[in-house]
Amino acid sequence: MTDSKIGIFSFFAGAGFLDLGFETTGKYDVLFVNEYHKAFMDIYKGARANLDITGPKYGHEVKDITEYLKPEELKVFKDRITQERKQEKLIGFIGGPPCPDFSVGGKNRGHEGENGKLSGTYVELICTAKPDFFLFENVKGLYRTVKHREFFESMKNKLKDAGYYLTEQLINSVEFGAPQDRQRIILIGFHKNILRGTGTDKSKDHLLTGFDWEANKTYSTENIAAAAWPATEPFREEGEREAPEKIIRELTVQHWFDRNDVTNHPNGKHHFTPRNGLTKFLSISEGDDLKKSYKRLHRWRYSPTAAYGNNEVHLHPYKPRRISVAEALAIQSLPKEFVIPQHISLTDMFKTIGNGVPYLAAKGLALNISDFLGKIMAEKNIKSYATADSE
Rank of each mutant, 00 (worst) to 15 (best):
Q169A: 09
R149P: 00
F151V: 05
P320H: 12
I284H: 04
E242H: 12
D19S: 05
T54A: 14
Y318V: 15
E379D: 14
A215S: 08
G55D: 15
H298R: 01
P131I: 10
K158F: 05
D29Y: 05
A231I: 06
E175C: 13
F40G: 13
P131G: 09
K27Y: 02
E238A: 15
G105R: 07
V123A: 07
P97N: 10
D29E: 14
Q87Y: 08
L195M: 15
R259C: 07
S220E: 12
L74R: 01
I340R: 10
E222N: 11
H60Q: 10
Q180K: 14
L297F: 03
R196D: 04
T263I: 11
G16Q: 06
K57W: 08
T273S: 09
G120R: 03
F211L: 07
I323D: 00
E153C: 07
E337K: 13
A231N: 13
Q180E: 15
P335F: 07
H191K: 05
W300D: 05
A231K: 09
Y219K: 05
K158I: 11
G239L: 10
M377P: 04
D42S: 07
M349I: 08
G354L: 15
Y68C: 00
L90A: 02
D201Y: 01
T128G: 05
P100Q: 15
